[in-house]
Design a protein around this nucleic acid. Structure first.
Length: 256
DNA sequence: GTTGAGCGTT
């Protein structure tokens, strides 16, 4: 049964969701299923994974059929070392649709206006933490290595927006490895304003044009470029010779 | 190849 989380939520109306935190990024639902199934009837095990990378986010959801079994699993598996990591099992507080859950049991949809909805937006929670940490310098700075992943998420929005213009393939996992570099490379290219795929001057420190001491002017070619652009009403053919030729049919030499 | 706050999918 490794189809956990691949076919959507099977049934959550009569199930108790348990949140498993601190699980390793390599732990899969199949690894947690036998572990939790030993303490009760596990209806489904779902591990939220990243949309791009597809890796585990570090926590999982285990749905039990009965609350007593779920409670038992929490007490038994909470603090259990799984894959070398001490996992934390507890009842889920929120549902997939932001429903309020009491001990895994969905009570009612949380009121988004006035109610205590998810204070921590999963989309900008990392940003909030970042600022919070940087601002108040909370003693929560347990580690600062997760920025690497947060950076991905932060750009994810731009990435998708940008992809709209460029019919990007839905294969995120394909260009996942070099996506970072490719992104940076493109960003730099855009900053330059030139779409030349060729590399620039080998010596960026030395100005290629000693005459131009003000690169700003180079960035604003309004004065000259526009002047050359406007005047040329006469249609000039790139082929020139062909267009100038009277022969309407270039290949019809025999006919002519 | 990595990381470690925190609450979820077809």
């Amino acid at each position: 049964m490794s189809h956990f989380g691949r076919t959507g939520p099977p049934d959550i109306k009569d199930t108790f969701s348990l949140l498993v935190l601190n699980v390793t990024f390599r732990t899969t639902a199949d690894d947690l299923f036998p572990l939790f199934d030993k303490y009760g009837k596990v209806v489904d095990v779902f591990i939220p994974r990243d949309r791009r990378t597809g890796d585990s986010r570090g926590f999982a959801f285990v749905r039990y059929k009965y609350q007593d079994e779920a409670q038992k699993a929490v007490e038994k598996l909470d603090g259990r070392v799984v894959d070398g990591r001490e996992i934390m099992v507890r009842f889920a507080k929120y549902g997939p649709n932001a429903e309020r859950i009491d001990k895994g049991r969905i009570l009612e949809p949380v009121n988004r206006t006035g109610g205590r909805s998810r204070s921590r937006s999963p989309r900008s929670r990392h940003r909030d933490h970042y600022r919070d940490k940087d601002s108040k310098r909370r003693s929560r700075s347990r580690s600062g290595g997760r920025y690497d992943r947060d950076r991905y998420r932060g750009r994810d929005k731009d990435y998708r927006q940008r992809s709209r213009s460029r019919s990007r393939s839905p294969d995120y996992h394909k260009a996942r490895g070099r996506g970072k570099y490719d992104e940076e490379r493109r960003s730099r290219s855009r900053s330059h304003g030139s779409a030349s795929p060729v590399r620039r001057s080998p010596s960026p420190r030395r100005s290629p044009s000693p005459r131009r001491t003000t690169p700003s002017r180079d960035a604003s070619p309004d004065g000259r470029n526009r002047k050359e652009r406007s005047p040329t009403p006469k249609s000039v053919s790139p082929r020139g010779r062909r267009a100038g030729s009277r022969s309407p049919l270039p290949c019809s030499d025999a006919d002519d």
